[in-house]
């Protein structure tokens, strides 16, 4: 499990996103939702759950050079 993000670091993320959260809204999200997000983020970062991924593995996005 990832270490939980300290509240001060979480508040920095909120400031960077320029979200006008109240103290109660920030506390609710940090306490109840952000730990779940951290688990999800750790899962997509981990190569242990992604045995086929190597350094140049491509994302799912593609674009067509002849036109959007």
């Amino acid at each position: 499990m990832p270490l939980p993000t300290p509240r001060a670091d979480f508040d920095a993320l909120v400031r960077r996103a320029a979200l006008p959260l109240s103290e109660a809204q920030s506390a609710d999200i940090h306490t109840h939702a952000w730990p779940i997000m951290e688990t999800l983020i750790a899962r997509v970062r981990a190569t242990s759950t992604s045995p086929t991924r190597d350094r140049p593995a491509e994302p799912s996005h593609i674009f067509k050079p002849e036109g959007a």
Binding site: A18, L19, Q25, D28, V44, S50, A57, H61
Partner: peptide, 28 residues
């Protein structure tokens, strides 16, 4: 609103890691 806020706190790199995982899951 409180769910959407979570999307603003996610890093670009983590979004890309999710899309790389998506390609793997499609193949699997």
């Amino acid at each position: 609103r409180d769910r959407l806020a979570l999307g603003g706190l996610t890093s670009a790199a983590d979004y890309i890691q999710a899309t790389r995982r998506r390609r793997e899951l499609c193949l699997q």
